[in-house]
């Protein structure tokens, strides 16, 4: 299966946007070659600022630029964007409702060999809790391109989380809308909701379950906030159990967002696949997914257990 880099497409889409919109400004914190914002720099050096190893400074600078009418994309690794500069995002960007699009890369265990220090496992939780902040987790390059183009046209702050790893193409064509989700496979036994790299795993789990006679509905919850409540409620009526899958802590991420809707609407058994409340470590991304229970076979086993219970 051909794997494509979401980060490359992010950089390429920025260049495309830069051509049509002179108001686009891009900031980075000394990771431009990793986040791929360097592509924008090559074409528009006057609208690119590398603020160095100063994430807090970068986020507040983004706020100042946005307050003067710029549409600002600010990028670095997800852990530094959300952790190092949390309060700057909270006050100078989010509270002020400014048009800063935080596009963070190297999210989750899939960051791999760099280890715990570089694997953002809490970024969704940190961003979700901020009022008004929209949180998006794409699973393939088609989504990235559409998301970046769409949010550039919508006023206000966004958080977009990208993995380091390349991923298979899920969509032939995708059009992002805030709060959207996509049913990728129909099913009526169990619903599996996933984001990011876990969407491909969920699709594989669908096949494993199918071979065992279990019909799993697969939903891509690309918009973690706002979350598509209608799709969750529908699943609560039409399927018997729910599994959420994310390369993120099970605390505060997609699983909790879905659980809230299930609990308040019509409780059905729900299991959250993700990094349990524990520290991670260095390793190849598939080794890590294996150890921490994030592979398709894990998802399928959880599904079977949940349906049996």
């Amino acid at each position: 299966m051909k794997l494509l880099s979401l980060r490359d497409v992010y950089g390429e889409t920025l260049v495309e946007l830069g051509r049509s919109n002179p108001n686009i400004v891009v900031l980075d914190a000394d990771l431009a070659f990793s986040t791929k914002t360097h592509l924008f720099k090559e074409f528009f050096p006057d609208r690119f600022f590398d603020l160095g190893l100063a994430e807090a400074d970068m986020m507040s600078t983004a706020a100042g630029l946005a307050s003067c009418g710029k549409i600002v994309f600010a990028s670095t690794f997800a852990i530094f964007a959300t952790g190092r500069a949390y309060e700057q995002i909270r006050l100078s960007i989010n509270y002020s409702q400014l048009s800063v699009k935080i596009v963070a890369t190297h999210a989750g265990l899939a960051t791999g060999a760099d280890g715990y220090s570089h694997q953002a496992l809490e970024d969704i939780a940190l961003m979700r809790v901020l009022p008004n902040m929209q949180v998006i987790a794409p699973c393939d390059t088609e989504q990235v391109s559409s998301i970046i183009k769409t949010i550039a046209q919508i006023d206000g702050p966004f958080y977009v989380r990208l993995p380091k790893i390349s991923l298979p193409k899920i969509y032939e064509h995708f059009e992002f809308q805030p709060g959207c989700s996509v049913v990728l496979r129909e099913g009526n036994d169990i619903t599996i909701g996933a984001i990011g790299p876990m969407v491909a795993e969920a699709l594989e789990a669908h096949n494993i379950l199918k071979s065992k006679g279990i019909s799993a509905r697969i939903i891509d919850f690309v918009s973690v906030k706002p979350i598509d409540e209608t799709a969750i409620k529908k699943a609560c009526i039409e399927t018997k159990a729910f599994i959420t899958c994310e390369d993120h802590s099970v605390i505060g991420g997609l699983g909790d967002a879905v659980a809230k809707v299930i609990l308040e609407y019509k409780p059905i058994p729900h299991f959250r696949v993700g990094v349990q409340d524990t520290f991670s470590e260095s390793g190849d991304h598939t080794d890590l997914y294996n150890k921490y229970g994030l592979m398709a076979n894990h998802i399928a086993n959880y599904a079977i257990k949940l349906l049996d219970s």
């Binding site: 400074d57 100042g64 630029l65 309060e87 100078s92 002020s96």
Partner: peptide, 19 residues
Amino acid sequence: ASTGSLGQGLSIANGMALA
């Protein structure tokens, strides 16, 4: 600019000056 948490204002002002 929304401030109150100390240390953020100079960066915000930089953004305005860059713009």
